[in-house]
């Protein structure tokens, strides 16, 4: 694993997300009531900033057009939506959120097919 220290836990309020940009990669880290989950920050539909979405359980709702994605798997919550998001392993140590930025994973790699 290749953990990168991102930020202190208190910088991501409960049930909100925050964007982090590293080079060309933008991720969104969410605090699901004390559990931190990371996805890529761009909605596959029209590129909406998912970090700004409302959380519903472990799903996030894109603020632009209301697409739902599961933060644990990156999968869309409705079957009619074809694309899924990459998720990143995330953990908390000494009050700091760490993300493995090299281990982004899409459940459906050839989703568009």
């Amino acid at each position: 694993m290749n953990w990168t220290k991102i930020t202190r836990v208190e910088n991501i309020p409960p049930r909100e997300g925050r964007p982090v940009r590293i080079g060309n990669l933008e991720i969104a880290i969410f605090n699901v009531n004390g559990r931190f989950l990371t996805i890529e920050n761009s909605c596959p539909h029209r590129g909406g900033p998912l970090c700004d979405g409302i959380i519903s359980g472990t799903a996030v709702v894109c603020p632009l057009h209301g697409r739902h994605f599961d933060l644990e798997t990156g999968m869309p919550m409705r079957v009619s939506e074809p694309a899924c998001l990459a998720t990143f392993p995330t953990r908390v140590e000494d009050g700091i959120v760490l993300v493995d930025l090299t281990a982004g994973h899409r459940v459906m790699e050839d989703a568009a097919a």
Binding site: K5, T7, E10, I12, I22
Partner: peptide, 21 residues
Amino acid sequence: ANPTQFVQIEPMEKVLETQLV
């Protein structure tokens, strides 16, 4: 309302872009 309401979070460590997929 909270310290990161408007700001983009900067990682605490430098990341080599070549490591990213």
